[in-house]
Amino acid sequence: MIDIIIHCTVALLLPPLLLGVITKTKAAFAGRIGAPLLQSYYDIFKLFRKGSVFSTTTTWVFRAGPLVTLAATVTAALLVPLGRHNAPLSFDGDMVLFAYLFGLGRFFTTAAALDTGSSFEGMGAAREVTFSCLAEPTLFIALITLARMSGSLRLSTILTYPSPGLWLATGASMLLLVAALFIILLAENCRIPFDDPTTHLELTMIHEVMVLDHSGPAFGVILYSAALKLLVLGAVFVNVALPVSTGDSLEDWGLFVVAMLALAVGIGVVESVMARLRLLRIPQLLVGATILSAFGMLLVLR
């Protein structure tokens, strides 16, 4: 029971902090002081008190977009185990629902983008659906490989199964999976090298350009959903990459939060040292990730 309460609290409150950590890391790399760690909370809070501008072109789909995305992401957050603790909800094959909930959110985000009739947002939406379509098989191959190792079809078991012992036994395979999952994490959350979340005026942008016309509370919801998605997919990654357990439930929670913050620092480092890829290269990298995860699967079968 306590674990469920902590799960919900962490899932609901931690996400904006991750964005703050990433920004701080990038600022440190650039030799600046940077915005405060809690800046994302202030931003979201401020947006909830701001007025909205609605384009006359839009319909209810535009307003529904951010809300459905948030609802789908929150539901997905209930399915994924955080740290070494089972998720509040778990059943056989929950990973399918997990992946498809993000699909639902994406459908509505892109439809809302098309609702504005802006060609910028159309471009962003087209890229979003194309790249995530290529990213999806990788996620499934990685999850099947992990499921095979653990012998279960529940995300809670699959993702809490990896242990230092497993890493020693099947290190090569795990390494490939972790690499593939990291690429997917960056792609799905629209991070460099796939997308640059700090600008939206370049014609090469994906996520930020889709939400250009949202304002006020709706934009706050979008910002928050994006952060929550980072936490949820980050938790999948951290569970596989850092399978350490202290044995004590509360200490494990602490460990998870620290690991997530470390992941945020890692993403910040990647964003600082890399440039964004050319748009045409992105599909190649995504297919590369699929092949990496397929190699991981082959090594497990051997």
Partner: peptide, 23 residues
Amino acid sequence: PLLALVGGMAAITFVKAYGTIFL
């Protein structure tokens, strides 16, 4: 993974259809 890929492409197809016709 095949179904996932097909599902992703179905999403492209129907976001395109819905968005272009109705939005």
